[in-house]
Design a protein around this nucleic acid. Structure first.
Lengths: 341, 341
DNA sequence: CCAGAGTGCTCATACGTATGAACGTGCAGC
DNA sequence: GCTGCACGTTCATACGTATGAGCACTCTGG
C-alpha cells in the first residue's frame, strides 16, 4: 500500500508527470480545462497527496515554524511564563497556515535544552524559529546568529557581536508611564523596591523609572534603587517616617512583603502609601495590585509575524520590536494622604 | 549564506559525499577512526546540519512526530482536556529524542481542523502522528487509515471498515471496580445518572457499571440508565423514597445537581446517599467527589511509545491499548445509612 | 506562403541524502 | 605468483517534486 506519486497519476491520466505537478500546484496557465479535469479525476481516484518532504526539498520552504524553549513547555505551562506566549504563537501560526515544530529532541539529561548538540542543529528543519526562555544561552544564540539562521527571540537578549532580533515588552515606557500616572495623582516622593535578582531582566524598568523621576523633577531616595539590600527593618522604618507616598515594586512578591511590613507599623495601602508593581498579575487571585500587563499573547503573535516576514522575504532586515505594555488599575494606588501633601 | 551540504563537508575533508553521509548517520563499520575524525572536524567547522527534508525523502524517517488536535491546543489548555495528554507527549518525545510537529496549518475558518485540505495531507511530513480530540472526524480517520498513514488515536474511536489503533482509558474496568468498591461498603441498591449527551463517550463506563451490577447481583432501577430524562423532580422524589443508597454519576456536573436536589429534600451526601463520579475531578476545587482518574499524562506517554514502536518497526501490528484508571477516594462515599441496611 | 505568436504539452534537471554495488589496494596463504 | 579476502572509499542511483527550456503544432496577419 504505497502512496501514489505524481507519476502514477500521470500514467492514469495519460499525461506527463510535469503536467500533473502543474495542475496540483496551480500553475495551470497553459493547461486546458479538459486536461485539468482528467488529471484531477485521476488524482481523486488514486487518492494522491503531495509528498511534503519532496516539496520541501525542492522548494526550500516548509511552512514550518520552530518553537524552541530552553525548558519543557507543557510541564510548567499552567502557571507558567511561557503559556500565554504560546497561545499567541499557535493562534497566529494557524491563521496564516503554518505548522509549528516543538523542538523537544534537543533535551539533555539535566533538563536543559540546547540548540546545538554534538554539532547538530535540528532547528534548521523549520523555516525559522521563535526562541523563548529566560535562561536562553548566550553562546548558542551567538552561534545561531553567526550561522545566519532565521529566528526571533522573545524578550530582550543582548549578545556581543550579534544583533539578535527580539520582541521586547516596552518596559521603559511602561515604567515611565506608571510613575507619570502616580505623579498625576499628586505623588512627589517615591521609593523603588528592587528585586536584587536578575539584573538584566529589570534594567529597562529601572531605566524607565529613573527617566520619569528625573523628567518630572520627582524625589527618590530609596536605598533599594541604589543597590543596597531592601525591605530591611531599617528601610521600612525609614519609609514609614519619610516623606515618600508612593512605592514602585519590581515584583508582586516584594509588594506583598511590603504590605505586611507596613501593617506592622500601622500603615495601610493605599491609604497611607500607594504601591504599584512593575510586573503583571500572577494567577493567584490575591490583592489587586496596580501593575503593568505584558501582552504575552500579542507578543507571541508579533513574533510569528516578524519571523514569517523574514521567511517570506529573506531580504527583510532583522529588527527588534518593542511592544507596548498596558497599565492596569488595581486597588493599591490612591492620592497621597493629606498629612503628607 | 547557504546551509552547507554533505558535499561541502566532503570537499573540505577530502573525501566523498557518501563517506560523509556514512559518518553523520553512524554507518561507520568500515571507516577508520582517523577519517571519521577528519570528517567530524569538517562538519563542525562548516556547521553542517542534515537536511531533514532530503533525509525524509530518502528514508521515510524524520524523528518527527505529529500532534494533531481537532481544535486549537493552547487556547483552551489551562483547564482543558488536552493539556495533560500533551504533557506526557512532550515529556516522552523529549526522552526518546523526537521532535513534535503541531499541526496547526490545517485550520479552517470555522475553527475546526481537518487533516485533508484541498487534497493535501500535511501530516505525512511527520513519521507518524498522535491524534486527539473528542470531535475527531470519522471520515478523515477512515481515509487516513486507508491511506496507510501511521497514527494512534487517544481515546476510543470506532470507524467502520477501519481498525483505528487507540489508546483508551479502561473505563469498563474502572466503572466495574467503582461499583465493586461501593458494594464492598455494603451498598446493594444503585442508581445511575447518565449525561444524555455523547452516547459513545460513556458507552464503556455504562458497560462496566452494568457488568458489575449483574455480576454482583446488585439492584439498579434508575430511570436515567434506561435512557429517560434524569434528574427530574419525579426522579429525585423516587430516589429519596426508594431503597437506593448509592448513585453513580457520569459527570461532576450531574453530581452537583444531585447534591442540591437532595438537599432540598433534606438528604445529604454521603450520610444518606453515597455518590461516586465516573470522570476525573476538574480543576475547580469544589467538593471532593469519589471518582476515577484518567491518567492523561501517562496516556500521552503511552501514545508516543505505541507510535514510535510502529515507526521504528513497520511490521509491528497496530493495536489498541487499554490504560488502567485509578479510583480516588473523596468525601462522598460512606456506608449505607443504617435505616436502609 | 511565411514570419511570428500563441497553445499544449514534455524533457531534463536539481534539490540533499542514503546505500548497495563496485573498485582498488595491500596482504596472507598456498 | 596467483587467489582470496578484508579494508577503505567511491560510484551511481533513487526518493518525489517543481520548473525553465524546448518542441510540435495551430492560427493570424501581411
Amino acid at each position: 500500500m504505497k502512496a501514489p506519486r505524481q507519476s502514477d497519476v500521470a500514467r492514469l491520466a495519460g499525461v506527463s508527470q510535469s503536467a500533473v505537478s502543474r495542475v496540483v500546484s496551480g500553475d495551470i496557465d497553459r493547461i486546458p480545462a479538459e486536461t485539468q479535469e482528467r488529471i484531477r479525476a485521476a488524482v481523486k481516484e488514486l487518492g494522491y497527496v503531495p509528498n511534503a518532504a519532496a516539496r520541501n526539498l525542492r522548494n526550500k520552504r516548509n511552512r514550518l515554524l520552530g518553537v524552541h524553549t530552553f525548558e519543557a513547555v507543557f510541564p510548567h505551562a499552567r502557571e507558567d511564563f511561557y503559556f500565554e506566549f504560546l497561545l499567541g504563537i499557535e493562534e497566529r501560526a494557524e491563521e496564516i497556515g503554518y505548522d509549528l515544530v516543538l523542538f523537544t529532541s534537543t533535551g539533555t539529561s539535566d533538563g536543559r535544552r540546547r540548540i546545538y548538540r554534538n554539532g547538530t542543529n535540528r532547528l534548521n528543519l523549520a523555516d525559522g524559529t521563535v526562541l523563548l526562555g529566560a535562561a536562553t544561552d548566550r553562546e548558542e544564540l551567538a552561534r545561531l546568529w553567526h550561522d545566519g539562521y532565521l529566528f526571533v527571540h522573545i524578550g530582550r537578549r543582548e549578545v556581543a557581536d550579534a544583533e539578535i532580533p527580539c520582541i521586547i515588552p516596552d518596559y521603559v515606557s511602561a515604567a515611565d508611564r506608571l510613575v507619570t500616572s502616580l505623579a498625576e495623582r499628586g505623588h512627589q516622593h517615591f521609593a523603588y523596591l528592587h528585586s536584587g535578582i536578575d539584573q538584566e531582566a529589570y534594567a529597562d524598568r529601572r531605566a524607565g523609572y529613573r527617566a520619569a523621576i528625573e523628567r518630572l523633577g520627582l524625589h527618590d531616595r530609596s536605598p533599594g534603587f541604589r543597590g543596597e539590600p531592601e525591605l530591611t527593618e531599617e528601610w521600612l522604618d525609614e519609609l514609614a517616617s519619610g516623606p515618600e507616598t508612593a512605592v514602585v515594586a519590581e515584583t508582586v512578591g516584594l509588594a506583598e512583603q511590603l504590605r505586611t511590613g507596613l501593617a506592622v507599623r500601622g500603615l495601610s495601602i493605599p491609604a497611607d502609601l500607594s504601591v504599584a508593581v512593575l510586573e503583571g498579575p500572577g494567577n493567584e487571585a490575591g490583592h489587586r495590585w496596580d501593575c503593568l500587563v505584558v501582552p504575552r499573547k500579542e507578543i507571541g503573535r508579533i513574533a510569528i509575524d516578524a519571523l514569517v516576514a523574514r521567511v517570506e522575504n529573506p531580504d527583510e532586515e532583522p529588527v527588534s520590536r518593542l511592544v507596548a505594555c498596558e497599565l492596569v488599575a488595581g486597588e493599591t494606588v490612591a492620592a497621597p494622604p493629606q498629612s503628607k501633601e
